[in-house]
Amino acid sequence: MSQREHPPVLAEELGKRYSRGWALRDCTLEVPAGRIVALVGPNGAGKSTLMGMITGLLRPTTGRISVFGDEPSGGGMHRSVAFLTQAKPLYPQFTVTETLRYGRNANPGWDQAYAEELVEKAQVPFAARVGTLSGGQRTRVALALALGKRPRLLMLDEPLADLDPLARETVLRTLVRECRTQGITVLLSSHVLAELEDVCDHLVLLTEGRVRLAGDVSELLRAYPEHRTLSQLALAHMRMGVAA
């Protein structure tokens, strides 16, 4: 089978149990290529756990997961995947230039010109140390590091959580523009449902460790005509999931 035929993420009966209990159970889903997928759910629904298993940072307790046809392992992340978490870990003592050099050294498919362009557009000074940047600037540098490796799947775990409304909008707009023009599949988790409204065309909704709803947004809205928007639909199903 050629690489093309493998979906970015395919999970079968996937489950993860921590010492405190199950974080994710019987999760069967496919992330289709080229889509911007919203991963939503209340706190503790298993969003970060699912992403952790896609990166290989976490090991599934049950079931199987494949990323572009490969099973994630502790060896290293799939080279077509980029990951950005809320914490946006970067070396605070590195300058922006050094951070990009880090990306170049650690990723064979690195696109230096593109990464520099992203930093320039964000008007972040190259000589500044990462530790001295504002939250918004840090996010832009982290985004440049993630996109500079030219991923085919970009995962973002609450990437906007610590940004002011203006920075949220700019970052999200940059993100959508870059990913749409390059056909990058995006898996985006966020608590702010309104933000995802015009951005996402695919929805995966988790509650209490289970997949409650998954599918194309327009198809879902057709199937549940009582909800007019993605946020209404998601909120209603979250309530149902928590009540159940």
Partner: peptide, 10 residues
């Protein structure tokens, strides 16, 4: 987490 999510192996 940054190092583990780059292309080079751990």
């Amino acid at each position: 987490a940054l190092a583990f999510t780059q292309s080079v192996s751990r």
